[in-house]
């Protein structure tokens, strides 16, 4: 049986001065090494759940389990949790506080108690891996949106977390930076990191994710394999989502008798082309 690395049981959370729960009885299980896409309309509770997983928000009711152990909220327990569960925020300007790229990236690893020589090496390595070197000497405020996003991912990768939570990682990025970020995400999963991503991109989620969680008004409506989730048109409508293009095209071609429903359903346009 695959190990459950993160589990939320009956989570309730509401913001101050809000009469509505942002999370209202959320139940989710994430297996180790999995790629999980959290999808749903704006305000469905995805970001709130991510902040709960990192211990930034403490749910009013319910528990979160990391590697089978219930997470605690003492300073020591939170530091231990945050060294294993990293979060990349949607807006890099909400994350990047340092004036220089190198200082920014070194912040997390130095907080883990790593010595400066090791931290320096790690910073160099992560900057090379994420192609940050060409703009490493520029101040953070002079970076483009895409470059800021790469730095914000490097901030977390350098801490070698077991889980990375990515809150809409390609929101407002150009195609070049989008594909670069997706390539980095692929590298994360190759390293065995559990990646949990909030996204609105149904095509990407369908092709990339092992599991999809559909969120609606603070609860997980369903969790399962992308090919099963994206077949449920009723759920998609309820969560303001559309069927992935590949799946829609595949179904049409099958309906018109141009393809037979046998074998694996294609995940990407390339796979569909190959099938045709």
């Amino acid at each position: 049986m695959e190990e459950i690395i993160l589990e939320a049981r009956n989570l309730y959370f509401s913001y101050e001065l809000s009469d509505k729960h942002s999370l209202q009885g959320l139940n989710v299980k994430v297996k180790k090494g999995e790629k999980v896409a959290f999808m749903g309309a704006n305000g469905s509770g995805k970001s709130t759940f991510f902040l709960c997983c990192n211990g930034i928000y403490q749910p009013q009711k319910g528990e979160i389990y990391f590697k089978g152990e219930k997470i605690g909220y003492s300073k020591k327990e939170l530091l231990a949790l945050r060294s294993h569960v990293g979060i990349v925020f949607q807006d890099p300007d909400n994350q990047l506080f340092s004036a220089s790229v190198k200082q920014e990236i070194s912040f997390g690893i130095l907080n883990l108690g790593v010595d400066k020589i090791t931290a320096e090496k790690e910073v160099q390595a992560v900057m090379e891996r994420l192609e940050i070197m060409p703009f490493q000497d520029r101040p953070v405020h002079a970076l483009s949106g895409g470059q800021k996003k790469l730095v914000s991912i490097a901030d977390i990768l350098i801490m070698h977390p077991d889980i990375i939570l990515l809150d809409e990682p390609v929101a407002s990025l150009d195609p070049k930076h989008t594909s670069l970020v997706y390539r980095i995400i692929d590298q994360m999963t190759e390293q065995g990191i559990t990646v949990i991503m909030a996204t609105h991109d149904v095509d990407y989620a369908y092709a990339w994710a092992d599991e999809v969680v559909l969120m609606h008004e603070g609860v997980a409506l369903c969790q399962g394999k992308p090919e099963d989730i994206f077949r449920n048109k009723e759920l998609l409508r309820k969560t303001n989502l559309e069927e992935p293009t590949v799946l829609r095209l595949y179904d049409r071609l099958c309906e018109k008798g141009m393809l037979k429903r046998e074998g694996n359903i294609p995940k990407t346009l390339d796979e569909l082309e190959h099938l045709i």
Binding site: I56, I87, N94, S98, K102, F107, L110, E120, M159
Partner: peptide
């Protein structure tokens, strides 16, 4: 709002009250 978000982001990276960063 930004300062609250920034503080949350720093906390998420194990901020312990001191800005530990490498020097340029």
């Amino acid at each position: 709002k930004k300062s609250t978000h920034l503080y949350d982001a720093m906390e998420s990276r194990c901020y312990n009250g001191e800005l530990n960063v490498l020097r340029d």
